[in-house]
Amino acid sequence: MNRLPTGMYLPGDSPIHRLDPRVKLLGLFISVTAIILVRPLIGYGVILAFLAFTVALSGLSIKIALNSVQRLSWFFLVIFMMNTFFYSPENAWFSWWIFTPSSAGLMQGVDVVLRVVFALVASNVITSSTAPMEITNALEALISPFKLVGIPAEQIAMILSIAIQFIPTFSEETEMIRKAQTARGARFDSKKLTEKAAAVLPLVVPIFLSAFKRADELSIAMEARGYRSASGRTRKKFAPLKVDDYFALLIVIAICILQILIR
């Protein structure tokens, strides 16, 4: 597959690139909250304007910003269709078999898809403008208060960042396994309860085996390079926040509060 991996870091020198990674991560978290909270149409407008502004400022192309949206487009289609056709039998345009398409469902479908796309664009901008190491460091810094109650923040940050890196690979592998078993004559659905588990074994067992094989290889590689555990690692010291950082935080917080006020 000759496509860009999702969230690949693209070095640059835009105002977004220069923001403190902790601010970017926190900002992402707050913007996603705002996206979840959106209610009226004008709210969508505000989010859209904000995202467009951020993308423009980051100097990343629209294509990069919409990167993983492409990968998920079939999923969006499913979500959209499901909502349109099954949302509610009330006020349906017509009713045929189990399908009850309605304008309320259509709106709901648009709504869900739009929110996910917004959230994806927001996280694409952050992951494309921030080196993976920086993200991990920032995550570590942000969850380090948890260490006071005995939670190993660095290790959790390491686990999360590895997990995120594995997602696209596993997606492709899973699709391959599904096709290979289908070609061998597998049927993943069975009417009988007793056979339902057996029906998905040809799918699930290979997925886990290939995933654990990767885990095995990676852990051998890491241990061979002398990686014992995250706790011994020296934490990166962050420079104090700059004016830009405070300003960026202020904007996202304002947008989030606005979404709550106009709900």
Partner: peptide, 22 residues
């Protein structure tokens, strides 16, 4: 080892995202 457990956890987390799609 803790390293191996951590990575297995990472892999399981990734599967939490991928498996429902499959």
């Amino acid at each position: 080892s803790v390293v191996k457990k951590s990575i297995i956890t990472a892999v399981c987390l990734a599967l939490c995202v991928v498996l429902p799609q499959a």
